[in-house]
């Protein structure tokens, strides 16, 4: 019976360590562009799309390219694997997840944060005049 308890607790401890390790490993931290340049880990950056600079979709490689400016005012070229995300134009800010490699931020996922539509009655107002 004692052996079983020992085996059981070792197993549980193992699962907890394994889970905690995977958690830390997969936790994608929010960083600034400056910090992203210093690490090879997968990170995420919040910023604004620099509309003045080029942005296009390259069909041959299926990549969407644009420039992102973070809160510190740093700008980085982002190469996103995939099409231009939904809501990209009206997003108040965008979040890119990926890695910084050789002067380019290689993004695997883009989240677009939109100004909330639910809290405004603007859409109602059109009928009121």
């Amino acid at each position: 019976m004692k052996l079983k308890i020992v085996v059981g607790s070792v197993l549980i401890a193992g699962f907890i360590i394994f889970g905690a390790y995977s958690f830390m490993e997969s936790n994608v931290k929010y960083v600034t562009i400056e910090e992203a340049k210093k690490t090879t880990r997968k990170v995420q950056i919040v910023g604004e799309w620099v509309k003045e600079k080029e942005s296009y979709y390259d069909a041959r490689t299926n990549q969407f390219i644009f420039y992102l400016k973070d809160d510190n005012g740093d700008v980085v070229k982002v190469v996103h694997n995939g099409a231009k995300p939904n809501n990209f134009e009206i997003a108040s800010h965008v979040v890119v997840k990926g890695r910084y490699v050789d002067g380019i931020f290689e993004s695997q996922e883009i989240l677009t944060k939109c100004p909330s539509k639910y809290q405004s009655a603007d859409a109602l107002k059109q009928y009121q005049n």
Binding site: G19, F23, E25, N27, V28, Y30, K42, K97
Partner: peptide
């Protein structure tokens, strides 16, 4: 102090 979600790979790995 700052919320961030785990990557999908976490679920697959575990």
């Amino acid at each position: 102090g700052k919320a961030s979600a785990v990557d999908v790979s976490y679920y697959n790995k575990t």
